[in-house]
Design a protein around this nucleic acid. Structure first.
Length: 291
DNA sequence: CCTCTATGGCGAA
DNA sequence: TCGCCCTAGAGGC
């Protein structure tokens, strides 16, 4: 779930549900009891995402800093006030709740309170985020162009580019026919510009639909509005919009990601895989050469 | 029911 | 390099 699109979608959800309110905060699991006590009843100003980091700004310069890691979840739900809030399920480290909405954080890699200077220190470590309007792709390009590291490594490095993870990395390299092992210094600037523009187009679709979409036909359908992000059965409209699409509503289909050994959809060659820095890389050795 | 894997990244060893 | 966070979905039996 959690590449940059998940965090931006989550920020929008938290904003819609709690922005301008003063939610109760608690730690049913207990591990964040102290932090929850400090947030309890405090006005929540806004939620925002930078790459894979989530920041929820509360009154008096206190921010909640969350990083979901690989298995973390932060569910936001609407409930009927007369029914009462749903009981926490599993290891809920933090619960935010109003009379209408409840958000449960589980299994996050990081959950802490941060002062403005601490937030700034985190942001200073991040490269440009394609999901942020003011992002400067040249900052990433300067690092890529002078690096001998493989482009597949560089795209995953949050200090180079913030928000891209293992799926977008593999898929965007395939979409541009770039050999993932090619050193950054051998990537043409025009290729980088095309990759950046592509991420700028693809990632907002992920935010809107709560699902990574990279295949041309699905991208086209998504841009045409064929998939309604509000069409979630059993959920009220409005702030429920961030919830993932129901299973099967949008087929999960990729060019190369997790398709090791299967035929390339473009040329039929076997999709290859290799563990690089502890992560599984996928690519087509025939389609993705040179460049 | 069970086991396995994962869209991340930190800190200990 | 490994454990961890301890979720969530897929697949086997």
């Amino acid at each position: 779930m959690p590449e940059g699109h998940t965090l931006h979608r989550l920020a929008g959800a938290l904003d819609a549900a709690f922005g301008g309110h003063s939610p109760r905060a608690s730690s049913p699991q207990g591990r964040f009891a102290e932090g929850a006590a400090l947030l309890d009843g405090r006005p929540l100003l806004r939620a925002d995402a930078w790459g894979k980091h989530l920041f929820v700004d509360f009154a008096a310069d206190l921010a909640l800093h969350v990083h979901l890691g690989l298995i973390g979840t932060f569910d936001v739900a609407t409930y009927q006030p007369d029914a009462g809030p749903p009981p926490p399920v599993g290891q809920v480290r933090l619960r935010l709740a109003t009379e209408r909405h409840v958000a449960d954080l589980r299994a996050a890699m990081l959950c802490r309170l941060a002062l403005p200077e601490e937030v700034a220190a985190v942001l200073a470590t991040l490269g440009p985020d394609p999901l942020r309007a003011d992002a400067d792709p040249q900052r990433a390009w300067r690092r890529i162009a002078r690096s001998h590291r493989a482009i597949a490594d560089l795209l995953m490095d949050q200090a180079v580019l913030a928000g891209v993870g293992n799926v977008y990395r593999a898929e965007v390299l395939f979409r541009h026919r770039v050999d993932p092992h090619r050193p950054g210094c051998e990537i043409r600037e025009s290729t980088w510009r095309a990759i950046w523009a592509d991420l700028r187009a693809l990632m907002p679709i992920g935010v809107q639909l709560g699902q990574i979409v990279t295949m041309a036909d699905q991208v086209q359908d998504a841009l045409a509005g064929a998939y309604d992000p509000l069409a979630v059965p059993g959920q009220a409209s409005g702030v429920s919009a961030w919830r993932p699409n129901p299973k099967g509503a949008l087929e999960r289909r990729y060019y190369v990601y997790r398709r090791a050994g299967e035929p390339c959809r473009q040329c039929g060659a076997r999709v290859r895989t290799q563990v690089v820095a502890g992560r599984n890389l996928f690519w087509c050795g025939r389609c993705q050469r040179r460049r």
